[in-house]
Design a protein around this nucleic acid. Structure first.
Lengths: 215, 215
DNA sequence: GTCTATACGAGGATAGAC
DNA sequence: GTCTATCCTCGTATAGAC
């Protein structure tokens, strides 16, 4: 019916034949899909449906599903990498450095809650192939360095830096991974609401700082 | 466990027409596959290949892929549920109760490192449907209770019990989920070696106890 | 650049012999 | 109970019109 066609056209504010915009919507939809399902279980059809563009556009711009996946990985990590690169923690005390680092990390993932999910699908499905020759692992290395320094100066208790770095990352990131299991709890605020995210950041930082400090 | 021993034995020297053993090998192989890929991305072909039995045996015993998946979920959680049910923490101090609880949890997942991965996939793929009407969430509820009591008695610092319970679970379980990303580190011992698992348990418990204690 | 239609292979599930 | 062979849906990827 003509009226419906018109309505549809009006609803679809997206400009037609705008290459950049099309790539952007595809990437955004793909990020969600890959976060939920990982590379293998993700469906190109589902991604296309979310965007409103034809499925074949994925192949036009990204060659194949794997190409789109890699573009999403790259794009998702760039914020975190950039942030961590900008941090200058060398002339800070270990406690201060740790707190700054954690705040930055938690801020990043709060702004993009899909990132932890993407990281861990990649970890378990592909054994983290993407991180093998990437600089992404530098994130963890920064944390290990902070912990080593803290142990050396006596600011932190005797702990294994690598093990503790993993556990600390877990404290920060598990919230986003386990959400599906925990969201059934009687809870007034949604887990991704700004208030809850802020509270998570504070609770995580408090737990970690108290956990590593030398008494 | 006798069942698993039988399954392993039959992986080497397969006897024919042993219903119980066949189901056991399928379940064992399926657990690994579902841990790595979750329900959707898991391949029945891959499961069959690992067992040596024909793919159609999966359908004979478990009706379909979903049926097998549910059997694996049930089976994988039973140890943890049983263990947590046996714990009697009521007449212990919050600190002692927390330590016992964590030790039991870490022991369970150390014996079955697939469990956290299975939980993770179920959480993100199915929004934890399996846990909705299951008693599995009781695990977390036990932890929340301990934390509430500790805050009330002043043994623990002021913390949000639910948020902290999630973060604590993350500290314990993330090690197993993030392994794929972390195993590229220069590391003498494999992440699932008894020594590393034991160290992880100790480090996690130390971090958490120090993290919640009132100073 | 974007769409529709379709080829083609992968993978879930079944049939039927043994 | 177990196997082999087969069916058929679903999903990736391509072809070709506009």
């Amino acid at each position: 019916m003509a009226r419906q066609a018109k309505a549809k056209k009006l609803l679809n504010t997206r400009q037609i034949r705008d290459a950049e915009a099309t790539q952007a919507v595809i990437l955004a939809a793909a990020q969600e899909e890959f976060a939920k399902h990982g590379l293998i279980a993700a469906r190109t059809q589902a991604i296309a449906a979310k965007t409103g563009v034809a499925k074949s556009m994925i192949y036009y711009y990204f060659h194949d599903k794997q190409g789109l996946y890699e573009a999403v990985l790259e794009r998702s990590h760039s914020d975190l990498l950039q942030t961590s690169h900008q941090l200058d923690l060398n002339n800070l005390s270990p406690e201060a450095a740790l707190e700054i680092f954690l705040a930055a990390l938690l801020d990043c993932v709060s702004q993009n809650p899909n990132l932890p999910l993407i990281m861990f699908h990649e970890a378990v499905q592909n054994q983290g192939q993407h991180y093998k020759h990437s600089t992404s692992v530098s994130i963890d290395k920064v944390l290990v360095k902070i912990l080593e320094k803290g142990v050396a100066t006596g600011a932190f208790r005797q702990l294994d830096p690598l093990q503790s770095a993993i556990n600390i990352m877990g404290t920060c990131l598990f919230y986003f991974i386990g959400m599906g299991n925990t969201q059934h709890y009687p809870q007034d605020k949604p887990f991704l609401s700004p208030a809850m995210l802020e509270q998570h950041s504070q609770e995580a930082i408090a737990l970690i700082l108290a956990g590593v400090k030398n008494t």
